[in-house]
Design a binder for these strands. Structure first.
Lengths: 264, 264
DNA sequence: CGCACCTTTGAAAGCTTTCAATACGGGTGG
DNA sequence: CCACCCGTATTGAAAGCTTTCAAAGGTGCG
């Protein structure tokens, strides 16, 4: 049984029962395909279905009146494109396919009925939204208070980590289907400066790149440069400690006895 | 019956039934008070309860290793401080009281049981999270692609709008309990530059301020300066059009027949 | 072969930050 | 009551990081 990327992402870090994942698999959905640079959803479009990216990369973005673009979030397979489709009427931003991409779309009412029956799946969806929020918060810090070099290093480390969650890339190698201009738009930099910064990291021996593949040759140096850790990805949340799946009520105050917070 | 700010915020823009709101009111909760500049929650603290800000202002923030602070989000009465408490184990950021503040805290298991029984309340909580995400996205655009002047104008307009959702301030006046340094940390600017920018807006006749009160004397000029609209606040979402509360299944594709999207 | 898009580099211009120094206002202790 | 301290607000000037403007090189594709 082949679960799609969303289930894979969930399985890895938030315990959703096998049965619930199977139920999700059998929920009717539409599959839609997009070419690279095609709009998946645009600002002011109605949000009538729940969209999940299954293959390819995409971005959320917005444009200023001066025509500048800000990429808000980079979307990977398994990411939920419209976690708020249940409660929000129209999109306040654009979603653009970076590469050829496919999505699954679910009727939000059907999905909702399913969630009512399968609380662990509902929790999984909520976890996914929480992870997304964590990434948004980190993106704000990245753009607001870090130098160009640190911004880039931080984004690359995060992307590598995220890719690892849904696949097993070659060690330290990131298949990055984004132009430098797109990276710049994500980081709030100009394309020119992004280029200089990237080459600077390369000269420093921290990254290497050729075409689409980017190798983080010195991840610890990169991490030190930008103070990276991945607490914001919310990776340590086994279901038995969450309130959703346990009916036991949970301890009033639990110790912060977490085990392995990786910070690379 | 006096609902607290959260209910007020919900009632205004996302239809939650009166009965559900009452049920929320009667759910056992703790009330905790904080002094200005006191930590409400810190990075790595366990998230064991659902926290809702009832009075006072607060901020989410993070610090870089160089000691710089980025304020991620400004929190007003009625905002949910830990919407992800159900599924996330520990906090990845700090929450600081800006003013004297009080919060209500709920056991997350009890709250969860309540939500299972009251789908419209669950939808309301989800809407709240969606609004929060919308604000985070907009904050990214603000910081990433706007000039200092536009950033400030945009933030002030958003804050004014948000304050209007939970109270009825004097026309165009914003009671802003933040120092210029705090505003600067929110906007990714230095305090010095924020000061200059603020005075510039003042000289241009767009704002006026004395102490804590800031008047947006020319809101349309401000809005034009930064291209403000409040689509991201998700204000037009009557429940009867969402999938959550209607059991009818909803139309496959609904027209974007929204009525009043305010943009000034 | 020519067009289109992406990458690179240099140089000047510009917006923001940093550094310094001066006020201002409230609260405290002498 | 007043000196004093501290956090906040202001302003000037220099330094710095990024952007913009320009131009050249590469690569893929019709």
């Amino acid at each position: 049984m082949t679960f799609h990327a969303f289930a894979r992402r969930l399985r890895k870090h938030y315990e959703v029962s096998q049965a619930d994942l199977s139920a999700l698999e059998s929920l009717p959905c539409e599959t839609r395909s997009f070419l690279a640079k095609e709009w998946i959803l645009q600002r002011e479009d109605p949000k009538t279905r729940l969209l999940i990216l299954t293959t390819g990369w995409a971005v959320r973005s917005r444009y200023t009146t001066e025509g500048q673009r800000q990429i808000i979030q980079i979307l990977l397979p398994g990411d939920v494109l419209t976690p708020d489709a249940f409660v929000v009427r129209q999109s306040d931003h654009d979603i653009l396919a970076l590469t050829r991409a496919t999505i699954r779309t679910y009727d939000r009412a059907e999905m909702h009925r399913l969630l009512l029956d399968l609380p662990s799946l509902a929790a999984g969806l909520w976890w996914s939204a929480a992870q997304e929020e964590g990434m948004l918060r980190e993106h704000i810090v990245r753009i607001g208070r870090r130098s160009a070099r640190a911004r880039l290093a931080h984004l690359l480390l995060e992307l590598y980590r995220r890719v690892c969650l849904i696949s097993t890339p070659e060690e330290n190698c990131l298949d990055l289907p984004m132009s430098q201009a797109e990276l710049a738009d994500a980081l709030g930099l100009s394309a020119v400066h992004l280029n200089r910064t990237l080459r600077e990291l390369q000269r420093a021996g921290m990254v290497e790149y050729s075409g689409d593949t980017l190798c983080l040759t010195d991840r610890s140096a990169l991490a030190q440069l930008c103070d990276y850790d991945d607490l914001h990805l919310q990776l340590d949340n086994s279901a038995d400690e969450s309130a959703f799946c346990g009916t036991s009520g949970g301890p009033a105050e639990m110790q912060s006895n977490t085990s392995d917070r990786q910070s690379s």
